[in-house]
Amino acid sequence: MSKEIELPVFYEDLTPPYIIKRKKEIDSLRELLIAGDFSEIQKIAHKIAGSGGSYGLEEISRIGKEMEVASISEDALKVKNSLEELSSFLNEIKVLFRG
């Protein structure tokens, strides 16, 4: 089931590539989690937390922040949960633009 989000046309050529980039990042994050590289996960999660809202996707910033906090405390389960939540969100989201 898709989640529809309506954004101003300003985001039309910004948000779709942003979503694609985040999708590509999911596998890297999974590999980092398996390797136990929480430091690198934290860096990526920090960028996700600091960017999602700027593209009209506050949910991504929220998940990124949770992942960042979990990676600081090296809580693999919480990182995994955030990662799967992010993956689901990215796969389900459908962005519409209004003029």
């Binding site: 960017s51 809202g53 593209y55 506050e58």
Partner: peptide, 8 residues
């Protein structure tokens, strides 16, 4: 200015 920005 704090990131993320709420809107442009």
């Amino acid at each position: 200015i704090k990131k993320p920005f709420d809107s442009y």
